[in-house]
Amino acid sequence: MMWFLRFLLWATLLAYPCLRLAGTYQRLLLGTVSVIVGVELLPDARSAPDLAAANMVGLYVAMCLATTSAPRHDRWRAVLIGITVLTGLECATALASFGLSSLEARRGPWPATARAVFEALSSVPRLGAGPAVWLFTLGRWTPWMPTARFKRIAPTQSAA
């Protein structure tokens, strides 16, 4: 439970900085995707920046910092790897969305079912990416993860 309290504390502390950085993060993502697709993409001036992407990075960092059972070096490495992966996932989602829009512009709209499937799958990273990446990088250091139940027999070490 201490992990949970530390996570909540870090997530709360990081919420405001993430809100302030959301616009910059969105421009960074748009810039990256623009370079990849070779088309300049600009943020919609009429709407506020998407706060969820930057906040998800903050949530992920909070999870890493809360995992004090992991060595400090592993925690910081996980922070760096995770931020890169989360940024990559956001770019991949944006690229897929851009690809779908381009395809629709050329060949007409997709069937409603196909679009619903695409939107459903692209919504998974919005709330699941941070916890999933954390589970991969540092989840094994938490005692409440399913080590015991999925346990494989480790090679025995002889002290003789």
Binding site: A132, L135, F136, G139, R140, M145, P146, T147, R149, F150, K151, R152, A154
Partner: peptide, 9 residues
């Protein structure tokens, strides 16, 4: 070990 967590993930 990382294995069990990856299975869960």
């Amino acid at each position: 070990p990382r294995g069990p967590h990856v299975v869960f993930l």
